[in-house]
Write a protein that binds this DNA or RNA. Structure first.
Length: 338
DNA sequence: AACGGAATCAACCGCCCTCGG
DNA sequence: CCCGAGGGCGGTTGATTCCGT
C-alpha cells in the first residue's frame, strides 16, 4: 500500500514543539466541534500543522482524561505483566491503564522498565531469565564444595558468601527455587537434606544477605500443596485488572529486586505449565494426585498465549549432567513434576 | 561554575490496516 | 477485486533536563 500521503508535500507546515497558542487553538476547536477529519482539522482550526501532528498532540498531551505524573508501583507491575503477554503492543497495554497513553507507556518501558528487568537478569523481550545455561554448569561443583549435599543433613562446611554472591545469578536462582520447591513437597526425610543450604543460596542469590528474601514467604511460595500457594495466575472472570494482577506480586516487592512475577510467574509457570493470561482469563483445573503430585489442565485451543509461559525445568536439568548427578543424590526427591 | 554524558520524553517518521468508492 | 484516503501503531529522533565530576 505504501505510505500515507498525509503531511507529504505540505510545504511550510510547522514541525517541532507545540506552542501554547497552538495548543489552545487545537483544544478550543476540538472541544467545540470534535476532531472530525484530522486531515481537514488544521485548516479549520487555523493551525499550520499537519493533521497527523494534531492527532498526536491531542491524544498524547491535550486530551483532558490524561493522567500525568509518576507511574505507580501497581501500574509498573501491570505494564511488565501485560508486556510479557502482549509484547510491544503499546496501544493494547494502554487500554488497561486508564489515563495513560501508548506513547507514555512506551517511553516509560524504554527508559525505565526495560533497564530494570535487564538489571534483574530478566530478558525484557521474553521475560525470562537471561539464561545462558552454560552458567549453570559450575553450580553443582559449587554445591559439592560448599556443602555435603548427599549426606547427613544440612551442609555445614564453610563457604565463601562473596564468591557465591558473584556466581549465583538469577537463572540459578530459579533452578534453586525449583529444587527448594521439590524439597518442600517430596516425601523427604526430615529435615530435608540440603534444605538449609539451598535456602541460604537463595538468600544469597537474591541480595547477598540472609535477609535478602523473606524465607518464610519464599517457602510459602515454593510449597506445592494443592497449588493453593501459587499466586492467582488466572481467574474465571474477566480480570478485575489491577487488583487481580497486582496479586501476582504480593509479598515480593520489598526492594529485593525480584518480584513474584519472576518467582511465581516464571518459576511457577515453569513447573505447572500454567498459562499466565489475565486477559484471556481462562479457568485452570488442578488435581492433587497425592504424594506431592499435582496435575493441572487448562489452555483452551483458542488462546493466543498457548505455551507462552511453558518451560520445562527437566529439560534444563537434562542438559547438564552435573544437575542429574546432584538429583541422584536425593533419591527421595520426586522430580516428575519438574 | 562549567562541562560532558546519561536520561527523559514529546514529537516525528514510515509502515500497516481498514474502509469506502 | 482494486485502489487510495485516513487513521493508527511501533520505532526512532533530537531537544531538553538532570546529574556526576
Amino acid at each position: 500500500m505504501g505510505r500515507s500521503p498525509c503531511c507529504d508535500g505540505e510545504a511550510g507546515v510547522k514541525k517541532g514543539p507545540w506552542t501554547t497558542e497552538e495548543d489552545k487553538l487545537l483544544m478550543d476547536y476540538i472541544q467545540e466541534k470534535g476532531h472530525g477529519s484530522w486531515r481537514r482539522l488544521p485548516k479549520l482550526a487555523g493551525l499550520n500543522r499537519c493533521g497527523k501532528s494534531c492527532r498526536l498532540r491531542w491524544t498524547n498531551y491535550l486530551r483532558p482524561d490524561i493522567k500525568r505524573g509518576r507511574f505507580t508501583d501497581d501500574e509498573e507491575k501491570l505494564i511488565i505483566h501485560l508486556h510479557s503477554l502482549l509484547g510491544n503492543k503499546w496501544s493494547s497495554i494502554a487500554t488497561k491503564l486508564p489515563g495513560r497513553t501508548d506513547n507514555e507507556i512506551k517511553n516509560y518501558w524504554n527508559t525505565h522498565l526495560r533497564k530494570k528487568l535487564l538489571r534483574m537478569g530478566i530478558d525484557p523481550v521474553t521475560h525470562r531469565p537471561r539464561t545462558d545455561l552454560s552458567m549453570l554448569a559450575g553450580l553443582p561443583g559449587l554445591l559439592a564444595a560448599a556443602g555435603n549435599f548427599g549426606g547427613s543433613g544440612a551442609g555445614t562446611a564453610a563457604w565463601d558468601m562473596n564468591a557465591l554472591k558473584l556466581q549465583v545469578d538469577v537463572a540459578k536462582f530459579q533452578l534453586l527455587q525449583g529444587l527448594v520447591r521439590a524439597l518442600t513437597t517430596a516425601a523427604a526425610p526430615a529435615p530435608a537434606p540440603g534444605m538449609d543450604y539451598l535456602m541460604e543460596l537463595l538468600a544469597v542469590s537474591n541480595g547477598g544477605q540472609h535477609g535478602g528474601v523473606d524465607q518464610n514467604i519464599l517457602l510459602q511460595q515454593c510449597q506445592w500443596n494443592h497449588m493453593n500457594n501459587l499466586p492467582a495466575l488466572t481467574s474465571s472472570a474477566p480480570t478485575s485488572g489491577m487488583h487481580n494482577i497486582s496479586g501476582l506480586f504480593d509479598g515480593f516487592s520489598a526492594g529485593d529486586g525480584l518480584s513474584s512475577t519472576e518467582l511465581g510467574g516464571h518459576g511457577g509457570a515453569s513447573w505447572s505449565k500454567v498459562t499466565v493470561d489475565p486477559l484471556m482469563a481462562d479457568d485452570i483445573e488442578c488435581k492433587n494426585n497425592g504424594g506431592g503430585s499435582v496435575s493441572c489442565e487448562q489452555t483452551p485451543a483458542s488462546s493466543p498465549f498457548d505455551g507462552l509461559e511453558s518451560l520445562n525445568l527437566m529439560d534444563d536439568l537434562n542438559t547438564d549432567g552435573g544437575w542429574k548427578d546432584l538429583l541422584e543424590q536425593m533419591p527421595w526427591l520426586n522430580t516428575s513434576e519438574l
